[in-house]
Design a protein around this nucleic acid. Structure first.
Length: 176
DNA sequence: TGAATGATGCGCT
DNA sequence: GCGCATCATTCAT
């Protein structure tokens, strides 16, 4: 496995593909955040391994999906080696296929804001903790493909929506 | 700007 | 075991 920050940047522009029971959906990743190891106070695994964050300790390529704020799921892709907790949070996608399914899942007609937030991404794709722990390298249901190779310049900033660890500039994104 | 909303995890009994 | 504070969010006001 390679460094999480490098993987995070490489994920930008890739297509996330999900073969759901409803049909195939695909989105281009355009915003991610890195959460790395014991020394990152914002990382779920910073205070040790628990039942909830156990997937983060798997080897890279697994999907870590967790439930938060009582109503939202977030999708992460685990990085690094087995035993070292790190993951990249998928904050935003650009819908490419299965947009009608996403609209149905989101119950909104407005397709410009279908997947522009971590909770919205999971809601649009229909991802829940049932998909938690999927090996995205071996799976033919949820996986990544090479996507847009000509993405705009990658920008970075402090991470969003967290209490601690804002001094780390581990949010990577590009705008259209 | 703040309410909704529930699983998680820590500290205490 | 039990209760309470916390939380990588979203949407409506």
């Amino acid at each position: 496995m390679r460094p999480t920050l490098l993987v995070a940047k490489e994920l930008l522009g890739k297509y996330l593909v999900y073969h759901s029971p409803q049909g195939i959906m695909m989105g281009e990743i355009n915003e991610v955040e890195a959460y790395i190891g014991y020394h990152d106070p914002a990382c779920h695994a910073a205070r040790g391994k628990t039942k909830r964050n156990a997937v983060m300790f798997e080897k890279g390529g697994h999907a870590y999906i967790y439930f938060t704020y009582g109503m939202h799921y977030c999708l992460n892709i685990v990085t690094e080696r087995e035993g070292f907790p790190a993951a990249v949070l998928i904050r935003s996608l650009i819908p490419r296929e299965g947009i009608e399914i996403m609209k149905k899942n989101r119950k909104k007609e407005n397709d410009t804001h279908l997947t522009d937030g971590p909770g919205k991404v999971c809601q649009a794709l229909g991802l829940t903790t049932k998909q938690n722990g999927i090996d995205m390298i071996a799976s033919d249901m949820l996986y990544l493909t090479e996507g847009n190779k000509k993405i705009p310049a990658i920008q970075k900033s402090e991470r969003i929506g967290i209490r601690e660890g804002k001094d780390k500039y581990w949010r990577f994104y590009y705008s259209l």
